[in-house]
Amino acid sequence: MSEAELQQKATTADSAAKPTVSIERELTQAQANLIEINGLNKWYGQFHVLRDIDLNVRKGEKIVICGPSGSGKSTLIRCINCLEEHQQGSIVVDGTRLTNDLKNIETIRREVGMVFQQFNLFPHLTILENCTLAPIWVRKQSRKDAEKLAMEYLERVRIPDQALKYPGQLSGGQQQRVAIARSLCMNPEVMLFDEPTSALDPEMIKEVLDVMIELAQEGMTMICVTHEMGFARTVADRVIFMDEGQIIEQAPPEEFFNNPRSERTQKFLGQVLNH
């Protein structure tokens, strides 16, 4: 399939995936879009990683992004909090347009929580200190308030008893749950998950997914890059399939899994689901 055809297909799939209701909403509730990405392009040197990405995320919406490795899905969500710079297009988060201005970037990062594949906890700080650091120094909360908030979130991810340990003393699943709590302590508007379960043993994947499902049920806006298709089915409002730096297809989960439009998506789902 040529690239032009693919793009054609992608756009048709895109428009087809959006039910009329959502178009209506876009007209009446343009404000309700928490994240608006328009015409996003990114290159690593000569390599074109993200190609003409358009993506709107409403408040409270849960989006799962899947696709083969190297398709640019991680890069896309890393652009949202400016861990990666983009070269063309615009990203607006909660009314703030992402520019090169450092103040602007820090404002957006305060509103966007991120959970990494490798947890990235701070190994020299205790679990509690990991969670209170940013609220104290960025949100200027008092130590007492920050600790109270941190303990609340640690309870919600079910590890309050580990608060005084160091990350190195915890299992992978526990560390990832701490990482989620650490992000939540900043009261973000949206949470980005970059393959949160890929580095975990099978036994620990469930405990992390359970926390994420709970979070979704509480109405958090979430964008998850993941290969956990079960999670996508349960939680997602919209599943996005990416390949070669473009959004190939997006649809609600039932439609996406039962009735994929593009050949590429069918092939991918065939490989992911049937084994």
């Binding site: 909090n81 305060r110 990494f116 990235n120 190994p123 940013a134 120094w137 960025v138 992000s183």
Partner: peptide, 27 residues
Amino acid sequence: IPKGQFEAFDSLGLSYWQGMIMIVLPQ
């Protein structure tokens, strides 16, 4: 110091100096 540590403090909204002084330099 792994790149992830820099990304972690960046994504929490900490500034360069805050991240350096509290996260990177101690390690």
